[in-house]
Computed example of a mutant assay.
Amino acid sequence: MSDTLQSTLRRKPSLIHVAELARVSPVTVARTFTGSAPVAEKTRQSVVAAAKQLGYMPNLLARGLRGGRTQTIGILWSLGGPHAAVQMTRNLTVRVQRRGYVPSVMDNTFDDIEISKTLEDYSHRGIDGVIVEWGPPVPKDKNLHLLLKRFPAVVAITPSYQGLEVDEIIQDRLGAISDVAKHFAATGRTRPGIIMPINNAKEKVDAFVKTLEEKGIPLSKIATIDCPWGASQVFTQTYYDILEERFPKGQCLPDCLFCGADEGAIAAVAWAKSRGMRVPEDIAIVGFNDGDGLKFLEPPIASISRHNYDVANAVEELLFSRLDKPELPIRNKKISMEFVWRESAG
């Protein structure tokens, strides 16, 4: 290593120092970090290694203000509620970092004003692309649709097709929910219940109730239980407490229960056992999100899988192909959720 490079290690390194160590031109280093022109993979690896050795960090913010690439991806995703949300965020950040980009994660509270503020902030900072969980509930402010168009690449994950004029992944849940209801009816259940945040899950509730009615179970026999929650609440305990309040001792209990999250299903199993009920003989229970540990519980808990790994792969493909080829037509990809039967469902 030259004397110049040795002294560089004792002060803030520059693009020129990276070029000297990697034995390439400063222009090649700039192209490596900006993506402004193709760079051979072997050369790119040499530049990245040299930058890492020197501790060089490109000024992404300044580059964004000049209209260049910042190598930054905004991820606007709900971080509240069940663990599955955090797991999905991790799936996305890993893929973004693997592509050489820096993820900027913000909590999506599904409040139109907060979403607008976040997108404005991303825009001012020159974020290259945005991954956004678009409901439910789906934002109604049309100005948000216009904000999305400011970014070179956007992937919106939606519960149904929204026509946002950006790439969409439609994460259809209604078919799987209908399958849960069909299973309850087919196994002779006659007193079904559904517990979840009703205001944020109207489509889920409607799909469940409609299917049961089609199978001959009237609305009057279906217990619809609202379970509102917020970031400060203990999620599993909330489900347990609401079930305890909704069904006082001595009242007729449901013989099957569909829960809006796996944590709710875990709470429901504990609650049922506290009431002397057997799962699934006396009450069948199904969760939502298909968390990793459900199959190891007693009994193993049925759920609905979001196929999050497939969704994350689809996000990666759509986002980075759009950054590489902005002229691509708008694309929509449907990934359906799936009812995963386990013993708790009966």
Rank of each mutant, 00 (worst) to 15 (best):
G80Y: 04
T224H: 06
V269N: 01
D310M: 11
E214Q: 14
G193P: 01
D179V: 02
D262V: 10
G129H: 00
C256F: 09
D128W: 05
K249T: 10
M1H: 00
R342C: 07
R331Q: 12
L219C: 05
S232W: 05
S2R: 03
L212R: 07
P197A: 14
E203S: 07
K140H: 10
I169R: 04
N143F: 01
I131H: 09
T72R: 08
N313I: 07
R69F: 04
E245C: 01
I113V: 12
K273C: 15
G264T: 06
A153K: 01
K140G: 14
A49F: 01
R44G: 07
P38N: 14
S220V: 13
R98N: 10
N200S: 02
A40T: 09
R90D: 09
P137M: 11
R69A: 11
E317Q: 11
Q71T: 03
E120V: 04
H83T: 14
G175A: 13
K295P: 07
F247L: 01
W341L: 15
D282T: 07
P326W: 00
L61D: 03
F258T: 00
S36L: 13
A201V: 12
Y239W: 00
M57S: 08
S303N: 11
R44A: 10
F339G: 13
N332P: 06
P26R: 10
P280N: 07
H124L: 04
A186I: 09
V48P: 06
G80A: 10
T238N: 00
F296M: 03
R11A: 07
F320H: 12
P159F: 08
S303A: 15
Q87I: 05
R10D: 12
T72I: 14
S7G: 14
E343N: 08
R278V: 12
P254H: 05
A272P: 02
Q233A: 12
L328N: 09
V47Q: 07
A153L: 01
H145W: 06
G346P: 10
R322W: 04
D107R: 15
V155H: 12
R331P: 03
S25I: 07
L212S: 06
A176E: 00
D241N: 03
G260H: 10
E41M: 10
R331F: 08
I113Q: 09
G74I: 01
D107Q: 12
F151P: 09
N332I: 13
P13T: 05
I285A: 01
L54N: 14
E120P: 02
R246M: 08
I283G: 01
I304P: 04
V311H: 03
S78K: 11
I75Y: 11
R23K: 06
P228E: 02
S160N: 06
P280Q: 07
S123E: 10
E338K: 14
T187M: 02
A302N: 03
R23G: 02
P280D: 05
V39M: 09
Y161M: 09
